[in-house]
Design a protein around this nucleic acid. Structure first.
Lengths: 203, 203, 203, 203
DNA sequence: CATGAATGAGTGTTCATTCAT
DNA sequence: TATGAATGAACACTCATTCAT
């Protein structure tokens, strides 16, 4: 009997290792050897689990997005529209280690997406999905009489996603300037400023 | 008798060429040869003007920030506080080709800054400078009775810089989703939501 | 209690698989994994039957030559010298699938033999054996009064083996140009031209 | 002024080096590093002159065929059909160092051609060109009344090209068995056997 | 016996950098 | 100054081989 390993589990471990390496030295400084070493393999050991380097990188994004969707599904369950909106916003901010790493990966791939149609398409779809979710929730909040802004749902969603990604960048670069609690407070102020009934939030 | 060349001018040309290359193929795909060719030099010709590749990249950021400061100095001259604030915000958005390229460079270097203390320090100083400028102007606007928000100047500055960088990212990735006019309109709505007297703006 | 397998049989199967792989992708593109997969084994499974890759390749030649000898022994049995000669010539031409594959293997190993003394020795012995057989048969044909050429037996053998290998190469590269029937016809013409009594052949 | 080199000359030198390496260790054992070293370059030095390894290998064949054509053009000039035919046959045999190396290259690429359509096409065209030349000359010889064979021109050409390549293989593998003079004598016997007026040859 | 995970040397290739001209 | 030839380290990737299970 040969040693049997759980391929999905190994892939996950390797992706975690890859993300650690990227966090430490940047995407450009990331070599397959470094990933292999970090994951506890020798130089060619990753080939059992990933076709090539690009497969690893792509898989990081796929995994990150899937995790994010799953986490949000849980975070939003059983809430009213306003609380859902709040939960969705928080979930897209780098408020804990897990989301911080996801944010960093996202940000790391942004410049690459500029010159890669495939990557851009991937990011585009994710951005549209988030915008659509935000818009829908904002519409529901408005219908519930908890929003007074004259801006359209789409406009509001666009502003909110902007703040999210802006905070994300600044937090990754200067974590001490935007600690999680501060991000939350500012995001809440943002909602209040735009006429959301933040007093009704279940915080 | 050696040929006399204007070093600063040549350096500037080379940096422009480098930025064109980076825009086209991304920072990772950028080679010194490609920069040299784009600038009209042969492979080793840049060594007279830059110590090495890193020197070129660093210089792009230095130049970009200096240009930005100079442009803002002009844009802000002879205006009242509210108009200055508006001008400063607009100047940091990718509303024309020049600022779009600057934004792209900035964004391109973000992930590198995560793993480079030197780069991060550079970005940090620039961010603090912008935050300080914004805070100061916001304070002046408040003193002029054109701001009703109960948020602190610093908090408001932080939110505004967040929106700026968020829009920047989205514009570079999906320019058609956030055309300049739309960015302006949303930014104006943002000011209005936070109680700035946008009616008094000289637009 | 270990599974009992017929080693020789397994070796034979593996060699057949190896020859199929070589035919399909060439000797350079042939990997041990590909051979193993083609033979129905997993990656390391061949090690029970062959020491290493080279052992497999070497064995292909050994096997091919042995097969060829056995086949010729049958083909020549009970014939007169002229018919034997004809049968031997035909047997060394790629006139059917089996001989075509043998020919391809032979040809595949030719360039390797140039830089491998061991391989060259092997090929040399085989060539001498064939030359000797041809010479002997030619001598017998001549004694039987069925050959008028003034060339020596050895010279005639050398020319005939040349034609065989020339046709072999061309057939493997461009099979449609030298279909089996055409090869036979030309070989017969060759014999006739050199004064063999081809009319007496039992075709 | 930079060091100016003659690119064509350097390419030629590199190809010569590559051919030496191939002759010594075989095509499979040939690495770009070995070629570079043999040519007097360091590991990456060939990239100025060849796009990649395949470019080098392809160029060897192209060069070999071109050289062969040029040499034949000279060898055939100002001769009658029979002498031309003889010259063409000799020129395609490995009778001196230059032609021996060409033959070895040809033979080295044969097995690769089996599994490479591009390579096969290249070899096919060359073979057809030679066959056509031979056929045409044979026709002219026949018209001149110097050929009595009842075989068609094409059939005769096919047999002759077969002998050529057969001798080529055997010479490369066992040079001492088929020294140049012996090859010539056998080829002459071949012509005589097929009814060519070899007595009229200007040897 | 058979599996397939793991190794690690070796490959082709790229590219920042140096430097003689 | 400018050229472009040359270097050599680094990279992603392949693959024969080993070996615990």
């Amino acid at each position: 009997m040969p040693k049997i390993v759980d391929h999905d589990e190994r892939r996950e471990e390797i992706l975690q290792a890859a993300m650690r390496v990227i966090s430490a030295v940047g995407l450009d400084g990331t070599t397959t050897r470094a990933i292999a070493r970090e994951a506890g393999y020798s130089s060619g050991g990753l080939s059992h689990y990933f076709a090539d380097k690009d497969d690893i990188l792509r898989s990081i994004l796929v995994k990150t997005h899937r995790r994010s969707r799953e986490r949000q599904a849980k975070a939003l369950a059983g809430k009213n529209a306003l609380d859902k909106l709040w939960a969705l916003l928080l979930d897209n901010l780098p408020l804990d280690e897990e989301r911080s790493v996801e944010t960093l990966m996202e940000m790391t791939f942004w410049p690459r997406a500029v010159s890669s149609a495939e990557l851009r398409k991937f990011q585009d779809e994710a951005a549209h999905a988030l915008l659509a979710s935000l818009s829908k929730l904002i519409g529901e909040v408005r219908e519930a009489g908890q929003l007074t802004s004259h801006l359209s749902d789409a406009d509001l969603a666009e502003v909110l996603i902007g703040v999210i990604d802006g905070f994300s960048v600044h937090y990754e670069l200067f974590p001490e300037r935007l600690p999680p609690a501060y991000q939350e407070r500012l995001m809440l102020a943002q909602l209040e400023a735009f006429g959301f009934a933040v007093g009704a939030l279940d915080i």
